[in-house]
Computed example of a mutant assay.
Amino acid sequence: MNYKKILDNFDVSAQGIWYPIGLSIILLIFVLFMPKKLTWKEIYITFGVVGWLATITDLTFGPNLDFFDLGTPQHEGIGDIISYGIIPALFAVIFLNYYKKEKKWRFVLIFIVLSLLAHWIMVQVGFMKEHFWKVGYDIPVFLFVYRVFLPWHLRFIRNA
């Protein structure tokens, strides 16, 4: 078995790969040990839906629009999978766990800032190379996700 080829296929030598791996581990540990206001079923569904939507969105728009590259350009690796499918899903679970309708704007703004910070650090460590897309362009996307989609998503799960 050629282990070097396997590691190359996972793109584990990409610059800054430690950041998405480390962030996902920290977020996962946080989710596992946070006081739960969500049920495990809600966590499971949210993780799956958000991870799937983020990955599908990237696969649909990423190659066609070429806004940015993660890791080694033109090579999907473990960092890409974590960055698209796991980190957004963990942020969504944490957001919904602490979300309170009466303080919605506070939570929305906190998670927009946290998400922008995560994006910015990904650029600073060299894992993300921006072409057209820049750190701030995410704000309307994050605003929609945190203000509209995730609260609707939780209501949908609870009313289904």
Rank of each mutant, 00 (worst) to 15 (best):
N2Q: 10
K5C: 14
N9W: 13
N9E: 12
F10R: 05
D11H: 06
D11M: 06
V12E: 04
V12T: 12
Q15H: 10
G16E: 08
Y19C: 02
G22R: 01
G22K: 02
L23T: 03
I25H: 00
I26W: 02
I26C: 03
L27I: 02
L28Q: 03
I29D: 07
L32Q: 04
F33D: 00
K37T: 02
K37D: 03
L38H: 09
L38Q: 07
K41Y: 11
I45R: 13
G48F: 10
V50W: 00
G51R: 06
L53E: 08
A54C: 10
A54V: 02
T57S: 15
G62N: 14
F67N: 13
L70Y: 13
L70Q: 07
G71K: 04
G71A: 10
Q74P: 03
E76W: 15
D80N: 15
D80V: 07
G85T: 03
I87V: 11
V93L: 05
F95V: 11
Y98V: 06
K101T: 12
K103L: 11
K103T: 02
V108L: 10
L109V: 07
F111Y: 07
I112F: 12
V113E: 05
L116D: 09
A118S: 14
H119M: 11
V123K: 06
Q124T: 00
Q124K: 10
Q124D: 10
K129V: 08
E130Y: 06
H131F: 09
F132Y: 12
Y137T: 15
Y137Q: 11
D138W: 04
I139F: 14
V141H: 05
L143E: 12
L143T: 13
F144Y: 15
F144R: 09
V148S: 01
L150A: 00
L150Q: 00
W152N: 06
R155C: 01
I157M: 13
N159T: 10
N159L: 00
A160H: 06
A160L: 14
